[in-house]
Design a protein around this nucleic acid. Structure first.
Lengths: 144, 144
DNA sequence: GTCCTTGTAACTACATTGATTACACGTTTA
DNA sequence: TAAACGTGTAATCAATGTAGTTACAAGGAC
């Protein structure tokens, strides 16, 4: 099992739009950098647009970030590309036997634990912004 | 996307083995409580056995926990049933374009973040044991 | 030896991912 | 205005993983 690379690609797209803001980043151009098909990029950009993270216009090349770099958290992107449903990272078997001590109680025992684990993971993304990503990329570029 | 219910079922199996320790818990019996097929249970129990969490013998009904309740963490079970590979909860698109500032650096920028997020999640399971689960189930049973 | 059990393999239906092609429709520009 | 380029989106495909099911070999208990 693995969470869709849409998340990583979403981050890539947004970072690229910012670092390439002098010229328009078409889906074709971005696809070249990500190394995939332009239609895949357009689909993900559609999700980012729907989430209010970028502004894109049908027919016109390029997209712009809707907010400041520092005001787009990785969690915003994570939610936008819809890789994990709310409180459904882990799945629990349904209809355990109600006449069994364990079967009767297991779901309500496990559920809050799974939710806590998912929250702990998501918190990491809430505390990071696109600015952190872009600065890290720029720093690496500077060294070389 | 969702992490396999093998994890939840694994917890269910171990809790049931403990709470039902007076009588032998055959795979058929456990399957009834979990509400699935006995072969599915045997497969998961095979994983738990391989991880050294339970003792089972071919041909003889029932299984026993290999350790104390308090010495089996949820993380042990999580690893045993193999629902998420080491540092591979999130996937990153491969072969981004090496001539692009973003493509060249995105993987090394994102990877440690994804690892941190996965670790944060796993830490929740490292801090909980089967004892916590069983006590919670017993407490619920007591109230009713 | 009979019966119950575990350990496995094989097969199925189903869902999701990511790539690909195709095309409608918007925008630009020559 | 017509051609060129770009976005939006649907349809299809191969690959993969999950969970259920059946079947059966082989171990152990009586």
């Amino acid at each position: 099992m693995s969470i869709s690379s849409r998340f990583a690609v979403g981050i890539h797209i947004l970072a690229l739009i910012d670092l390439n803001k002098e010229t328009a980043s078409s889906s074709e151009f971005i696809a070249g950098s990500v190394n995939t098909n332009a239609a895949v990029i357009r689909k993900i950009m559609g999700m980012l647009k729907k989430a209010g993270l970028i502004d894109v216009q049908p027919g016109v090349a390029g997209a712009k970030l809707s907010r400041e770099l520092s005001e787009i958290t990785l969690f915003d992107i994570y939610k936008a590309v819809n890789v994990v449903e709310e409180n459904e990272l882990f799945s629990i078997h349904d209809k355990p036997h109600p006449d069994c001590v364990v079967g009767k109680n297991i779901q309500s025992t496990i559920e809050p634990i799974f939710m806590a684990a998912q929250s702990a993971m998501e918190k990491v993304f809430q505390n990071l912004t696109l600015e952190d990503i872009v600065k890290d990329i720029e720093a690496k570029e500077h060294i070389q």
